[in-house]
Write a protein that binds this DNA or RNA. Structure first.
Lengths: 190, 190
DNA sequence: ACGTAAATTCACCGGTCAGTGTAGTTTCAC
DNA sequence: GTGAAACTACACTGACCGGTGAATTTACGT
C-alpha cells in the first residue's frame, strides 16, 4: 500500500537520526533503521541507494536545525562576548540532557576519518563552514582585527568544549570555553 | 612455536593500533587484526578476552606516547604562552602527515559514546585527564589566577583544534587555537 | 474501466562478524 | 622428562550484515 513517497522518506531519515546519533554509524544496521521507520528494507533501498547515501542525508537534515539552535542559544543582545558567554552557558545546560551525545557531525567525521570522499565528510565540512560563517559575521560586525581568525578560534572552542564534555560528561568545560572566548574577544578590538 | 607471550601480545596491540587508528573501531574486524599481527584468531583470544578488551588495551598503550609527544612539542623553554604557541605550531605541522587522523581517544569516544561503561571510554577519560594535569602543572608554575580553569580551556583548545583540522584537513585551525591560547594566558596573570 | 508508474512487501543471497571447539605442536623451566 | 605456557591449524557456529529479485498494491491520468 503505497503512501506518500516523501513522507516515508522523512520517516526513514527521522529513524536514522535517532539511531545514528545515539549509537553511531557503524553500530546501526539498515535493518534496524527500516524497522524503526516501520518500513521494509526493500522500501528503504527504494528511497536510498545505499547506507552511505542515507548517512549523508542524515547529516544534511541535521545541518539547519543545528545552526538555528546555535543562533538561538547566542541570542542577539549584547556584545559578541556576551553572546558567546550565553552560548556556552546554554551548551553546558543542554549537554546534561539524557540524550545528548556530542556533535553528530564530529562523531560521523571521527568514524569515517579515512573515507576521504564520503558524502558524510562533505556534509560535516559544509555544516562546520556554515557555523564558522555565522561566527564570522557576528565577529565582523564588531570592531575586531582579523575576524576570520577569531571566528576560527571560536569554532575551535565550540567543538573543543563539546568533545571534552562528551568525554568527561562534565559541563564545566563549557564554562572554561566561555572564559577563553571572552579573553579572545577582549584583546583584538580595533 | 611459542614466542615470548608478551611479545606476541604487543604485536597484536601494534597491529590493532595501526588498523584502529586509521580505520576506526567498528570498521576493523578481529580477523583483520589477527592477520596483520601474523597470528591465528585463537591466539588472539588467548591473549584478549574480547574485541572490547583489546580496544581498551589499544587506548591504554597510546596514552604515554601521546602525552610524551605533547610534552616534546611544547618544549620547556619560555613562558607558557611560548610553549603553547610552539605546541600548536607542531600540531599543525604534524597533522599534515599522510597518516594523521585526529585523536584516537576522541574518535574512540565518538564511536562508543553510548556505551557508558566501556573500557575504552574509561581509558580515553584517563588519558585526557593526564593531559589536563600536565597543562595544569605548567600553568600553575606561572602566576595565573585559576590555573584549573585555564588548563581546562587549553584542553578545549587542543581537542577543538584537532577536531577542526580533522574535518577541514586544514592546519590553520592550529594557528587560531594558538592565538586563543595566548589571549587566555595574557589575561589572568596574578 | 484501464494502463502505468510509484511505492511497497516478502523471501532470499552471499558474505562477514565475534567468538568457540578440537586436536595437535613447540619451547622452556623445573 | 614432564608439565605448563604459548602457540598453530582450521573448521565451525549462529547471528547479522548490506543489498536484491520478483511479485504486488495503490493512486491517478486518460
Amino acid at each position: 500500500m503505497p503512501r506518500d513517497g516523501l513522507l516515508t522518506r522523512n520517516q526513514i531519515v527521522a529513524a536514522a537520526d535517532e539511531l545514528f546519533y545515539s549509537q553511531g554509524l557503524h553500530a546501526v544496521s539498515v535493518d534496524a533503521i527500516a524497522e524503526k521507520a516501520g518500513v521494509t528494507k526493500k522500501t528503504f533501498y527504494y528511497h536510498f541507494k545505499s547506507k552511505d547515501d542515507l548517512i549523508g542525508c542524515y547529516l544534511d537534515a541535521r545541518d539547519r536545525p543545528t545552526v538555528d539552535r546555535f543562533k538561538e542559544w547566542a541570542g542577539s543582545e549584547g556584545s559578541v562576548a556576551d553572546r558567546m558567554t550565553r552560548f556556552f552557558s546554554k551548551l553546558g545546560r543542554s549537554s546534561q540532557g539524557p540524550r545528548w551525545n556530542g556533535c553528530g557531525f564530529l562523531r560521523a567525521a571521527a568514524e569515517l576519518a579515512d573515507k576521504r570522499g564520503h558524502p558524510a565528510l562533505t556534509a560535516a565540512r559544509t555544516h562546520k563552514a556554515r557555523c564558522e560563517q555565522w561566527l564570522f559575521e557576528m565577529v565582523n560586525e564588531e570592531d575586531h582585527s582579523d575576524a576570520e581568525t577569531i571566528a576560527r578560534a571560536l569554532m575551535v572552542l565550540i567543538d573543543g568544549a563539546v568533545s571534552q564534555i562528551l568525554i568527561h560528561r562534565d559541563a564545566k568545560y563549557a564554562t572554561s570555553a566561555g572564559l577563553a572566548a571572552r579573553s579572545l574577544l577582549s584583546r583584538g578590538r580595533r
